[in-house]
């Protein structure tokens, strides 16, 4: 609290005495709650109660329209690990994370370094590199759907440079990779923007003194830029992992989980189980698993950021 606020507080409290101060504290409390209430009511209705309800539903078998029918305890969770569907979509999701996260960060780092060059018109390139933040998952998926198209797609151009007949979405071996490529393209914009902003917070003096010491650009990159960006990399890793775990749109638009369930990622599987199969309890147990995975990731990030703040 700053000085003036403190003095005004003191003068007020001495004017009204202890009872008055208490009364005033109660009054400010209710005043504050009044300001918080619109958001608070929405959060309670659409976040906190539904989260608890998700736990509840996951302990039941429901009828096809989602009414709780029979309490089954942890049975839905046991089924998760017994049936192949969940284990399959869980492992496919992990693979998807592996495909997308490092690739996205590496490409974005390259683009951010390019966007950092001191050239005329560089802001146009920065805008181009970040363009995917303006593009929705649905439109990007449609665009890539036709890039992968056998006759009008990119295969013709790839043939010219000696890459022949990629199967893209048709084969269960390449479908997940193809979806991953779409996701990488979509995420690059955000990652590049954040890396560019982070790069600009590195004090110029560091580079200048390194230059006086005779460091070349590679040395500067290796010993200044990379370490100074480490917390940003970690942040992006978590953000991209969360996004990868939540991937739904490209699956729904491009593959519907196929071929052979090879792109049946977690959120798509949740959607399919409750929306089409009417298994709300089973779907809810998958949603709860997703919740815990994401919670773990966020806590990891929090711990890391805390440690970083500590060291500074």
């Amino acid at each position: 609290m700053d000085q003036t606020a403190l003095t005004s507080e003191l003068s007020l409290s001495s004017k009204f005495g202890k009872k008055g101060r208490q009364k005033r504290a109660v009054k400010t409390f209710f005043q504050a709650i009044l300001y918080l209430s619109p958001a608070l009511i929405l959060f309670i209705t659409f976040v906190f109660i539904p989260l608890i309800r998700s736990f509840e539903i996951s302990a039941y078998i429901t009828d096809p329209i989602g009414r709780l029918a029979k309490f089954v305890g942890l049975m839905n969770y046991e089924r998760l690990f017994q049936t192949t569907t969940f284990m399959n979509s869980f492992s496919r999701t992990l693979m998807f994370v592996l495909y997308t996260v490092p690739t996205t960060i590496l490409i974005s780092l390259g683009l951010a370094l390019l966007g950092d060059l001191q050239l005329k018109g560089i802001s146009v390139f920065r805008m181009i590199f970040s363009i995917s933040i303006a593009i929705s998952g649905a439109t990007a998926s449609l665009m890539f759907l036709y890039i992968y198209h056998p006759t009008v797609g990119v295969n013709y151009l790839l043939n010219l440079v000696g890459i022949h007949n990629l199967t893209w979405l048709v084969s269960h071996k390449t479908a997940l990779l193809s979806v991953a490529l779409t996701t990488v393209w979509l995420q690059i914009g955000l990652n590049t923007v954040i890396l560019l902003a982070a790069r600009q917070t590195i004090p110029e003096e560091l580079f200048e003194s390194a230059m006086i010491d005779g460091a070349n650009s590679w040395n500067k990159f290796l010993h200044i830029t990379l370490p100074m960006l480490s917390s940003t990399f970690f942040f992006l890793m978590v953000v991209d992992m969360l996004a990868a775990f939540q991937t739904f749109t490209p699956i729904h638009v491009m593959t519907k989980g196929g071929p052979l369930d090879s792109t049946n990622l977690l959120v798509y599987s949740i959607y399919r189980e409750f929306y089409f199969n009417g298994k709300y309890g089973f779907a809810a147990s998958q949603a709860i698993m997703l919740f815990f995975i994401m919670l773990l990731l966020t806590i990891l990030q929090f711990v890391f950021v805390e440690r970083k703040v500590h060291y500074e």
């Binding site: 709650i33 976040v47 309800r53 969360l242 997703l290």
Partner: peptide
């Protein structure tokens, strides 16, 4: 506004960012 439990309420608000929308979508 300086009010009681301000930090608690602030944490409540922040915690909503950690709850994935998909975890609450069925209810």
């Amino acid at each position: 506004i300086e009010f009681k439990w301000r930090n608690f309420f602030f944490l409540v608000f922040l915690s909503t960012m950690m709850i994935p929308w998909e975890a609450t979508i069925i209810p």
